[in-house]
Design a protein around this nucleic acid. Structure first.
Lengths: 295, 295
DNA sequence: CCCCTCTGTTGCGTAAAACGCGATATTTGC
DNA sequence: GCAAATATCGCGTTTTACGCAACAGAGGGG
């Protein structure tokens, strides 16, 4: 937007003299004359009553003067406001994650980020981690916490935040089916254990793989959606579960269960932040992305 | 003021698609791309987050969108408002005249003008007619009612409105010094008459000329500023006065005085409207000027 | 009354900018 | 993996803007 015509008009309205006004605007008198004429043609009215010796505002010119002042001020104000807004990185970022993530490392990360960029609003949506990547790919969320998939889609950027070891957990109270030598598991001890596992997801796949290596078909006591619920059921004494250690660490029931030092250990998986690659061009997204340090 | 950048921006903000937006604006995609880029450079912030496949408003873009809508609407509204204002000839005209003129023909003229152009405000200033032309020349008044001067300054336009005959007036009640044969004035009868004349102005000059032709040096009883005051003094019986007949016709004291049918009659002068020639370019002034019909 | 100065406007030549076309790089969907 | 889509860039052409100089008209002073 070229605001010079308005400035030219205001200068002339103030001085009522083409020469002095053109000096003030650092243009030649002819330029200013043509600028005013063009304004008048665009508006369809004459703004100045003038001859070779006198310049006077018309009634319409007076009306336009107040408009021009306001319009120019609004423009400049907007300019400054936009720029400072851009510097302050004002905006909104939505993050999708599991309940556990929101309790644990994500909470620390985001509160640190918030002090660095107080102008950025964070919207935290919790839900099933299995949906995380789909939501980001669909553009419904800016970022998500998700286990690193086997193959990362090309459009996605992924940054590991933490390792999430899987652990076996057993109730604190004694039970006949709790293996006595978890450090060297035997087929006999494990084939009758009531297991509480996830319905789906990496933790379930890893557990299945572990049992397969041992040559055991586990007795599934319950299949649960959500790791948090597994802790609850194990705490109540229904069986042995497999959960990410981080879920355990953040569970209010962690004193009701204990980790079994099973060998070989279950694999861990990477939990990290994912975002659409192209969205990293946004300074907001970029700021949060840069805030997190890999691994 | 070129508002196209704003229109381009709004079109793109609506469609989020350079091709369709450029079609809507009847420009090529490259033009629209450059237009947006230029806007962003002027503002110092990026308005769209875009790559070859996606276009999205940034936070600043959203702020700018509301501004652009308002600014464009204000501009268009102002345009229309100014144009209709120009058509309706809205404005203000100041007219300077004597008290008598404001009572008599000017009142009729202006009330007629007001019905034709209800949008025009008229400001009536009354005062000494001798100052009328000076005030118009100085630009303090748009127009004035004034006796036609001997030589009209070149910068002034003058249009006669009415003839103003000068008359001798005497008190209604008898007085020794009232000439018995005013139809054929004699030097003896007039040399001792107490005269009440204007301090200055055409009426005084004409009266002096009249006496000079008669060969009489009049006895000046009083010199008065303002014809209206002459009527008052004559009505009170102080002497004989010379006033424009029109002043008499509009005087509330006209029954206290009578016109002397003196021969030869005093000359008349033209009373008319005067205005700066160059101010006739203003449609407002022109409208009032054209409303009055000469003589 | 004439001349001189001041001042807004206009013609014109040059410089800059805007514009559209085609090419390009990159991305998405099949 | 390939084809369609699409924002952007390079380039040549057209349009526009700018300043200089000349012009015209209006005051002001001698």
């Amino acid at each position: 937007m070229d605001m010079r015509p308005l400035k030219h008009f205001l200068a002339l309205a103030n001085t009522l003299h083409f020469g002095r006004a053109s000096d003030a605007c650092h243009v030649s008198p002819s330029t200013l004359s043509r600028s005013i004429r063009q304004l008048e043609e665009n508006l369809g009215v004459s703004l100045f009553e003038r001859d070779n010796r006198h310049v006077a505002l018309t009634r319409q010119g007076e009306t336009f003067q107040t408009y021009a002042r306001e319009a120019l001020e609004q423009w400049e104000q907007l300019r400054l406001s936009l720029q400072s807004e851009a510097l302050r990185l004002t905006g909104e970022i939505s993050v999708y994650c599991s309940v556990t993530a929101s309790y644990s490392f994500l909470y620390a990360l985001l509160s640190q980020f918030r002090t660095h960029h107080p102008g950025i609003e964070l919207k935290l949506h919790t839900g099933d981690p299995a949906e995380a990547m789909a939501r980001v790919l669909a553009g419904e969320e800016d970022m998500a916490i998700t286990p690193r998939p086997r193959r990362t889609p090309e459009a996605l950027a992924f940054k590991s935040l933490t390792r999430a070891p899987l652990v076996f957990i057993a109730p604190q109270q004694a039970a006949a089916w709790i293996p006595s030598t978890p450090e060297s598991p035997s087929t006999e001890q494990w084939c009758e254990v009531p297991m509480i596992l996830s319905e789906a997801g990496l933790s379930r796949e890893f557990a299945d793989t572990w049992f397969k290596a041992l040559g055991v078909t586990p007795r599934i006591y319950a299949q649960v959606a959500g790791h948090e619920a597994i802790v609850s059921m194990v705490g109540l004494g229904f069986g042995i579960g497999v959960v990410p250690k981080i879920v355990l660490d953040n569970s209010p029931l962690q004193e009701r269960v204990r980790v079994l030092p099973v060998k070989p250990e279950l694999p861990h998986y990477d939990v990290g932040l994912c975002v659409l690659e192209r969205r990293l061009k946004s300074p907001l997204i970029r700021a949060l992305w840069d805030e997190v340090q890999e691994r």
